[in-house]
Nucleic acid binder design. Sequence first.
DNA 1: CTTTAAATATGACGGCCATCATGTATGTTC
DNA 2: GAACATACATGATGGCCGTCATATTTAAAG
Lengths: 190, 190
Amino acid sequence: MRYSAKETAEKHERILTEAARLFRERGFAGAGVAEIMQAAGLTHGAFYAHFPSKEALASAALTHAFEQTNARRQADTGDPKQAFLDRYLSVAHRDRPGAGCAIAALGPEVARDETSRAPFTEQVTQMIDDMSERFTWGDARDAAGQKDRSRQNAIHLLSSAVGALILARAVNDPELSEEILASVRDSLAE
Amino acid sequence: MRYSAKETAEKHERILTEAARLFRERGFAGAGVAEIMQAAGLTHGAFYAHFPSKEALASAALTHAFEQTNARRQADTGDPKQAFLDRYLSVAHRDRPGAGCAIAALGPEVARDETSRAPFTEQVTQMIDDMSERFTWGDARDAAGQKDRSRQNAIHLLSSAVGALILARAVNDPELSEEILASVRDSLAE
DNA sequence: CTTTAAATATGACGGCCATCATGTATGTTC
DNA sequence: GAACATACATGATGGCCGTCATATTTAAAG
């Protein structure tokens, strides 16, 4: 049967949302089309009415995941940098990859999937620009070098956070895992 | 036919080596048993004479990859920290994941594969201990806090390097990719 | 109101992949 | 030297997965 435009749009959104979650939880290769469609409350056959291929879905879901976490970052109160660090390097974030950073969940897989590299690059560029502008960086220098320094700091902070989260998730030992989160949090807050 | 113990051991080693390479290049899910065996010069059926399952191979290949890169780190000359940064955050390392750091290539997948988490943890623990001891850290404090501070610094450095390499690989734009490597290299060398 | 187009469910197809079965030849062991 | 054990190749099997075909139903278009 044919459904109303509103209904269809809602289902499209559900597919995207569930895909963004499942891909982050299990990886692009680990989450199947049928599983995603079932999570969205549909059957597998309907998929190709919404996306031309799984690859295209991966690309769209990646952007969707970034937008979700971007919105959270924009909604932070208080010192933006500290708020980011506290949230990103938390046990809660470590334990819920499906709702968290797409870089930490899918980075290496994106590197191997040519189609998703473009949206990934766009989102990372935005993140770096945003953090570079909005975060306050301790080491003020001359006005000329200020901007470049902020950018370098933002890149370093993002890299550190991503690496720490990946390590904290992969490691088996809860003590070590929390030590990693705390160490990088402390190092970056200085 | 039955082969000599020496021959068999060599083939076993070849399987491990090719698996360590292919898994880093394509991920655990992306590299198949048949492809690995072919790369090792054998057919797929012989696999189960060497490993009980693909999962067991993944675990063993992960350790093998760590040992390969550990050996390179131990062989570095000059300032160990600087040598590590120069090598780890190089374009050459970025472009050859199959010969590079297992954390950056497989970290998120390890987090989802319970079997490989134990060897991963062991290797990361060793890396942190080694870097904590052998690298020279600029900010000398009181002797009491010295050890903990080295450890925190080592964890931060490793996290930053891993995150930067993953970002540099996933990003589409060569300029941005090299900027990420250079930024984190400069930040950590200070 | 009629016609058209589209979103969905069901089901099928083909390919890939991990694993296992079997036969065989040959080191290894006693 | 005879019996045994084993590493290998070939081939089969069963399952999963992405994609497509078809029928159905109904919103949308005219």
